[in-house]
Nucleic acid binder design. Sequence first.
DNA 1: TATCCCTATCGTAAAATTACGATGAGCATG
DNA 2: CATGCTCATCGTAATTTTACGATAGGGATA
Lengths: 97, 97
Amino acid sequence: MERASTSKKDLQLAAYAKALAHPTRIAILNYLEKQSSCFTGDLVIVFPLAQSTISQHLKELKKAGLIQGELKPPKTKYCIHQKNWKIAKELFQQFFD
Amino acid sequence: MERASTSKKDLQLAAYAKALAHPTRIAILNYLEKQSSCFTGDLVIVFPLAQSTISQHLKELKKAGLIQGELKPPKTKYCIHQKNWKIAKELFQQFFD
DNA sequence: TATCCCTATCGTAAAATTACGATGAGCATG
DNA sequence: CATGCTCATCGTAATTTTACGATAGGGATA
């Protein structure tokens, strides 16, 4: 019986899955897909959560690479990170066959 | 500005993502896809983790509905829950467009 | 009936996640 | 230069996750 190794792909997929593992983050991404971009403040209005909580979720999504932020002082404009989005999409596709 | 509601689909997708949000669980599912089925003990040999830890991961996967267990005393045989697997696959597909 | 296998569950500790209010930093505008 | 707006970060508390060893239970076999 062979020892299972945890591949880079497994780790990456798990990291993406972790970013998606919260309903609010799913909803934020859905929102971003519809709107193509938005400011933090928009989400604070749309979601019944504190501003700091929204910011924290955005941070998680950025850490995973699924979104990117652009400074538009005094606001921050977020949008989907298309390149990584595609990578994630393909990893999930492969995973599910 | 409209209030975002968290739909059933969002919740279900987040739940599946949560189940996939750990490298070991990804690896277990990969293993199950290859072998089509396995016993808990197989995984204990294959992965460098305690038996109770493996059991806990299996429990998480079962809770999410991605696998199912069948008693084959004194063993337990696990396999992918095909129906839910397909549902998960489609949810991720839809999500990524 | 007693014993043996295998696995689930319990108890527990450390770490991570999630939420909030408060604070601080960055950059326009007055 | 001071003010105001927006957002990130800090500090913190409650909960959840992850890991382990130890224990319990279910069903064969002797």
